[in-house]
Design a protein around this nucleic acid. Structure first.
Lengths: 348, 348
DNA sequence: TTTTAACACGAAAACGTTTGCGTAAGACTG
DNA sequence: CAGTCTTACGCAAACGTTTTCGTGTTAAAA
């Protein structure tokens, strides 16, 4: 099996020293035109490319950034990755991914695997299990060893680092206000349990929108789904819960769901119960997945601009990596990405 | 900014040599129990981990595999990645991704970026542009430098390497036969232009199914979409074309589409034209995306088992990487993943 | 003719590991 | 007491780069 050609081999072949070859290839004025030409021609012929690993070792810089996400088969996360990849490549970086699979231990293992020299910094979104256990030592440790972290979407305020988040609160509030303006009198909320920060914020947005319009929130209109169970599999259970919500509250004429699947399930259940969308009931979801766009009726959603989040996160990280003089007082930014209400057929 | 601790620092601190530290940590019998304890305790205290880059350089092995795919915001590809990641991590490898964005030049650049020592081997799916230009020199070159490649899904027979493909032909044939058995008399095909290998094979499957049932294929029932245009954006154009197909061929009572979006669009158009699914018209798609499962009516599809493809591809690659004695005669495998018809509401 | 400067190149160190080999000190054998 | 064997460690090379510094040769200046 042939190996890639190295400086040493070129040097031996051309009967010069390794340093001469290196300098010739980098067009150093130290080297005569003759030699340069000879070396460059030979290098081109054999398609020489400097070994990245050797460079990384020498420069103590890998030009690679690590992404840790809970799940890749997920429109939101893959869009974020695309954003990261876009600016990373543009700025000369590679992207290496690790999946935590929503598991604490896999998150830790994956981070350790990458932190030992493979990458220069992390971009990550915290797994559900980690959020539940509230054990963040691996983040702290990583950062204390000089490796910067940028968190996105699922973040915790305990950790001091750069963050890119969606304005979940305002996005939710806008959505609910939209429903209220559209004449909904009884808006229900389908959300997650509170430990998921984004679910919590969206719930708060819902509540404040109601209060701003002098509507008293009713506990029975709020359905909190236990999302530790894989709802892709237990779709029927999810739908059953939603059906229950509808049946116990016949007055419902508006639904705000904190994600796409909940919204879609709500629409499905509503149709099944003979409710017309958006005439009898209006629905708004949260996300910019594919389902919303292609469902019938198509779903009005709060778009998170996932790709843009990825881009901002990458810029934040690379900026930090390339800042020559590290200010003694580390300063961390939190970038808030504005949401956008994409109106489709599920609202009037 | 603190850096990670190295052998050298431990050695200096404990006043022993670097080699002693290294051996002590690896539990070499050369080192006395006393020293081992001292070193190991110190290393643990400072959370020492060997630097991966240095190891990669020394071992000439990175334990990282590179994935190049045309697009990550795509259910199929992200499922493949998940499969790759799963077995890669299990077998001690990292995964680094590059997106070609369906562009030839980005594919080349990305491969070159990774091939220079960053990874041990590639898993990739060819970009559309590359397939069109039929320029495969970068694959050949990469392999000639001793870096193995495993291709999946979109492959070309010209290149000798390991491959993992879906049985597009049989999958399509089965689907069309299903429609015929379900009493469809006039089955239309919505496919891509022929340069995409998978589109071509699926078209052939369609044709053979018809012929096996003594049905003469009709050119006007075959709609070839120019998929170089971004159909997410030009959805209306796609639907217009499909509508034209329906209107010129009122007899159509079955549709086989080579991907999810075409199938969904067909259903949407059919509904618009007042056709009931599956009573008046039955539809089958090809893929295992999310849309099929959650559309109304849900779509019967040919599942490709994307995750399984990723797993097989990773195993194939790692097997090759770890085979000690390279047989002189390189042997390449082509693994064919069986498809599965997932029946949902769009067929009887 | 001697001194100096320019030129063109090579040696070596460094990045962080691992490992084969050499060796000093002490223990043991005869 | 001389010779041999263990024990426990250090040295150095290697992986592939880049870069600083040193040096020999030649041409120009004094």
């Amino acid at each position: 099996m042939k190996r890639k050609i190295t400086l040493k081999q070129i040097a031996r072949e051309l009967d010069v020293s390794i340093s001469t070859v290196s300098k010739a290839l980098r067009n150093s004025p130290e080297i005569s035109e003759d030699t340069k030409q000879k070396v460059q021609a030979f290098a081109k012929l054999y398609n020489y490319r400097p070994n990245n690993i050797a460079l990384s070792l020498k420069n103590r810089k890998t030009n690679t950034i690590g992404i840790i996400i809970p799940e890749i088969v997920h429109h939101f996360f893959s869009k974020v990755i695309r954003g990261v990849e876009l600016v990373a490549n543009k700025r000369g970086y590679n992207v290496i991914i690790g999946l935590s699979n929503e598991s604490f231990s896999k998150e830790v293992i994956n981070m350790e695997m990458l932190a030992n020299g493979s990458i220069d910094g992390f971009i990550l979104s915290i797994s559900k299990e980690t959020l539940q256990q509230q054990d963040y030592h691996h983040f702290i440790e990583t950062m204390s060893q000089g490796m910067p972290i940028v968190m996105f979407d699922r973040v915790v305020s305990d950790i001091k680092c750069d963050k890119v988040i969606v304005d979940d609160f305002k996005g939710a509030k806008n959505a609910v206000e939209k429903l209220i303006k559209n004449n909904c009198k009884s808006v229900a909320l389908i959300t997650t349990k509170d430990y998921v920060s984004v679910g919590k914020l969206r719930t708060q947005g819902y509540l404040e929108a109601l209060q701003d319009h002098k509507i008293t929130p009713q506990a029975e209109l709020i359905l909190k789904i236990d999302d530790t169970m894989d709802y892709e599999v237990h779709l029927d259970k999810l739908e059953a819960e939603i059906e229950q919500l509808f049946k116990s509250n016949q007055s419902i004429d508006g639904i705000f769901a904190v994600n796409e699947l909940y919204a879609l399930s709500a629409m499905k259940v509503a149709s099944k119960l003979g409710l017309r969308i958006p005439d009898d009931i209006q629905v708004i979801g949260f996300t910019d997945g594919v389902l919303s766009k292609h469902s019938t009726p198509s779903l009005t959603t709060v778009s998170q601009h996932a790709q843009h989040m990825g881009e901002r996160a990458a810029d934040l990280l690379i900026d930090k990596l390339e800042k020559e003089f590290e200010t003694e007082e580390e300063e961390f930014q939190t970038v808030v990405i504005a949401t956008e209400l994409v109106e489709r057929e599920s609202t009037k």
